[in-house]
Design a binder for these strands. Structure first.
Lengths: 194, 194
DNA sequence: GCAGTAACAAAAGTCAATATCTGTTACTTG
DNA sequence: CAAGTAACAGATATTGACTTTTGTTACTGC
């Protein structure tokens, strides 16, 4: 079966965002692109921001997919998995900003407004790091007092390489070797802690 | 001797920025506050952005002063000094954003434009961290392959707590205990590295 | 030569009339 | 009842005439 009407509206919205940017994309434009009245779009999305939130949600789901694959790959040792997971996150953001700077700005602007969508995304990332950390503790890779606070620490320490605001300011200028060195230091620290 | 004319113009500019924000502060307003023609301001600053750059430079010098005191306090052990230095930086930013949110936005907007002023400031911070790292290496606190790349790593890892863009997004919401935990992990890592 | 000014063109900003967009309601069609 | 529409009020954007601001030049007083 083909796309649901909801999906078709979302596709059209992304297309409009791509063509005209978030400031000049309106519900009327999206409706016009689909040859329907804007009232009908409101049948499927409560408001313009709900529509944009749904776009952000889809984007973030795409970001998460390869991360989840890494997080659940139990046969790889936790330290290697942790590094691979955060590296994948940093690479995704870096690639997005290098390949399509304008679209990254759109993504960034839309997610900046989508407060609870982003909160759920962060919670999701947090949970996957916790899982890797706990696996590492079980395997004796490192001691672990609190997976929660340690996961937060990992995300904080690496945000320079994956937080949209930072990635956008950096414009992919910084080397991922800097990321690798930092990640190695963090893992050394995790393993050294009493 | 009293303030130079340059300083008086800078003071008036800060006053205008405080009162009306960066968007509504013009060279004409600054001149009017000093009872002079705007042409005369141009005698002392090449352009409006040069004037704002000078304001940013003064602010950043104020940020640096207490940091330099810590960096050059050779009698305190390097690990403690490193933590105190970065903590002081994070605290300064945090306090600025909590005490006077509007003024932090002004500072942030002005420094966002002042590209080479900020580059010099980052270089200055980088140098002070290098100094602490080298002192630690001499005292046997940690091994040190490259002070430069390690200093960069420390600034990267802690940027969540001191980079204007991050501090502004966070609005002082995050606990400095999170910072302390991260800094302890980083120092543990530094000490553990082969 | 340092501190200052008046007069000016070009760029940027203001403001109010006008047009467009958002979100709702009541209604239609398969 | 899922998908769709027309008509509407209020909020938001756009436009174009009209300031204001930026930055320069040529000049004054000490």
């Amino acid at each position: 079966m083909s796309d649901s009407i909801r999906d078709r509206i979302l596709d059209a919205t992304v297309e409009q965002l791509r063509r005209h940017g978030p400031a000049k994309t309106g519900v009327v434009d999206v409706a016009r692109a689909l040859d329907m009245s804007h009232s009908n779009v409101y049948k499927h999305f409560a408001s313009k921001s709900a529509l944009f939130d749904a776009v952000a949600e889809r984007w973030l789901a795409q970001v998460m997919a390869p991360l989840t694959k890494i997080a659940t790959d139990k046969k790889t040792p936790a330290p290697k998995r942790l590094k691979a997971w955060v590296r994948q996150l940093a690479e995704t953001k870096r690639r997005k900003v290098l390949d399509d700077t304008e679209m990254f700005a759109v993504y960034s602007a839309v997610t900046a407004e989508a407060h609870d969508v982003v909160a759920r995304h962060i919670a999701h990332m947090h949970d996957e790091i916790c899982e890797i950390l706990r696996d590492g503790a079980k395997a004796g890779d490192w001691p672990l007092k609190s997976a929660d606070s340690t996961a937060k620490m990992i995300l904080n320490a690496t945000s320079r390489f994956h937080h949209p605001a930072m990635v956008q300011l950096d414009q992919g200028k910084s080397d991922l070797k800097e990321f690798d060195a930092l990640m190695d230091l963090l893992i050394a620290g995790l393993q050294a802690r009493g």
